[in-house]
């Protein structure tokens, strides 16, 4: 009697849309120190245009979809959509959907503000981990204020041409694990170099990682690989995840190692036994005959 409680619903019911809302936070690296920007500053315009078109394509998917865009600049990171302060009052100027015009204008205006205020020519690294941390706080707030019972899929897309630096390692790991815990997917679109740290983040949060082979087709790459939301991705054939190398690099020589020694106090990794930890200055006792007692076998 209980078998057909659902009744004979429409045959197409399972193909139609789900009422899930999707929040996308795009982090755009606008740091002028990026190699591709130093060689050709016009790449930034192209990159911004592609990102805006992509952002609007995201909003076009569903009426409920939400968007936020951040710029990660040389000295600071900022939300450029929805920017600080009051919303712009935008009237339609052409056939573009009003909301899309608003997105485009706001992003361009706020970005211009950042670019003009920053004139230093010193080469600095982009602090992407910090930008992701801000994005996570933002997502956390949206999750808090959303209507109860509403399902919100959040993800972060990082578009960057910088390399990744080991100096941010700790911050990166913190944001990746937080994202994993909050079910936030991190997607990374690398414009220039291969980013092994951010790739680990994609792997940890089951996001997509793509290194764009050529800048010309950026929008098309974004639309193909990053537009589908995580729930739809399984229905599409997308670039398969590559196996990520999770081997540790030792703190002493920065080399990848298979077997290493870990300080029991601060968890620093060394490739050889040394009597003192260089990180926390703990003095270790010399292992007896170099062999660790096998605890499993001892207890009965």
């Amino acid at each position: 009697m209980m078998m057909d409680l659902e009744g004979s619903t429409e045959k197409s019911a399972d193909f139609t849309n789900t009422d899930e809302t999707s929040l996308l936070v795009i982090i755009m690296d606008s740091n002028p120190a990026q190699r591709i920007l130093r060689e050709n500053p016009h790449v930034l315009t192209q990159c911004v245009d592609s990102v805006i078109a992509f952002a609007n394509a995201h909003l076009m998917q569903k009426a409920q979809n939400k968007l936020a865009v951040m710029a990660c600049h040389s000295k600071l990171s900022e939300f450029i959509y929805p920017g600080p302060g009051k919303q712009l009052d935008v009237r339609q100027i052409d056939g573009q959907y009003e909301v899309f015009t608003l997105v485009e204008k706001t992003i361009k205006q706020n970005l211009a503000k950042i670019l003009t205020s920053e004139t230093s020519t010193v080469i600095t690294e982009s602090l992407l981990a910090g930008a992701i941390a801000m994005a996570l706080c933002y997502i956390h707030r949206i999750n808090r204020i959303k209507a109860p019972g509403l399902k919100l899929n959040s993800r972060i897309l990082v578009v960057t041409g910088s390399g990744d630096s080991a100096s941010q390692y700790m911050n990166y790991m913190n944001v990746f694990f937080t994202a994993q815990k909050q079910n936030v997917v991190i997607d990374v679109c690398a414009l220039d170099q291969h980013l092994s740290l951010l790739q680990q983040g994609c792997d940890i949060t089951s996001g997509m990682y793509l290194r764009v082979p050529q800048m010309q087709g950026l929008l098309q790459y974004l639309l193909w690989v990053f537009l589908p939301e995580p729930p739809i991705r399984q229905k599409l054939v997308l670039p398969p995840p590559v196996k990520v190398d999770y081997r540790a690099a030792c703190f002493c020589h920065r080399e990848l190692i298979d077997i290493g020694y870990v300080c029991s106090v601060c968890l620093s990794i060394f490739c050889k036994f040394s009597p003192i930890c260089t990180t926390c200055h703990t003095v270790f006792k010399i292992p007896s005959l170099g062999v660790k007692p096998k605890k499993k076998k001892l207890k009965i």
Binding site: A57, R91, Q92, I93, E98
Partner: peptide
């Protein structure tokens, strides 16, 4: 053509958006 206009701009404004 018209989806592109909606997404990227161009074309004529919609009828109700005079200033």
């Amino acid at each position: 053509r018209n989806l592109k206009i909606a997404l990227l701009g161009g074309g004529k404004p919609w009828s109700m958006s005079s200033a």
